[in-house]
Amino acid sequence: MERVYTFAFSTRNFKKAASLFLDSISTFTMYEILLYETFIFYTVLTSIITLDRVSLKQKVVDAPEILTVLGKIPFLSEFLNSLYECQYKAFFSAFAGMAEQIKFDRYLNPHFRFYMREVRTVVYSQFLESYKSVMVDAMANAFGVSVDFIDQELSRFIAAGKLHCKIGKVAGVLETNRPDAKNALYKATIKQGDFLLNRIQKLFRVIDL
């Protein structure tokens, strides 16, 4: 089983890792390999970047098995709960403490930068989900950081396609442009229809021959 977890980490398949951890909580018996606190540490970290809010609440935030040891792991309770409760200043404070633990963990260290980016993508996306537009300085204040810091962060994440928004430099307004799910589905349906039509036309040509 340890090899399965290690493989999931090494391939950065955190979604698979989270699923494995969550499925094993109630039957955890690997005490000779892993401390239960460390197991919960991995469970929470992988779940935060892979589960939606509803699933995170049900499977992690309110999970009795996790709650029993959550407070024993430095910064982890604040890291999890401040994210779920949208307390962004508290989250960034806990985030700094968690970074040291992640950096020196033998399994997570190779993916330190990747994980840090994924967590920030989650928290920035969650904040922006509530707005169609918001002032950059208001977002900076919510996170307890400088305007320059949040501006640089957002610029990098937008350029990388991690966030669906744009920054109006003059007015200092951040405008979200989240993909329209219905429109995307419509376009996908049209594309599939065109593909099917082309296949049918080719089939008729073959039959005519």
Rank of each mutant, 00 (worst) to 15 (best):
F143K: 15
L22T: 09
K103W: 00
R3T: 12
Y88P: 10
Q101Y: 13
F75S: 06
K57V: 05
A188S: 12
C165H: 02
R3C: 07
R12F: 03
F39M: 08
L209V: 11
A138H: 02
R106D: 09
L203S: 14
A188F: 04
L163G: 05
Y131N: 02
V147K: 15
A181Q: 06
V44W: 08
R113M: 10
M98V: 03
N183Y: 08
V119E: 10
I49V: 10
Y124P: 07
Y88K: 14
I102E: 05
V4F: 13
F157V: 05
T68A: 14
P74T: 09
V119S: 02
E118S: 13
N141M: 14
D194N: 15
T6Y: 01
V173Q: 07
A140V: 04
N81Q: 12
S130K: 00
F28P: 03
R3Q: 12
T43Q: 11
I66V: 10
E65H: 09
K187M: 11
V170A: 08
I48Y: 05
L35C: 01
I73K: 03
R3I: 08
N177V: 03
A8D: 06
L76A: 00
T38H: 09
T121S: 13
T38S: 08
L76F: 06
V147Q: 13
K59I: 04
Y115T: 00
V69H: 10
R3L: 12
N109H: 00
L163D: 06
Y42G: 10
R205I: 01
A8T: 06
D208P: 05
S24G: 00
S146M: 14
A8Q: 02
I49A: 06
Y131P: 01
K132D: 00
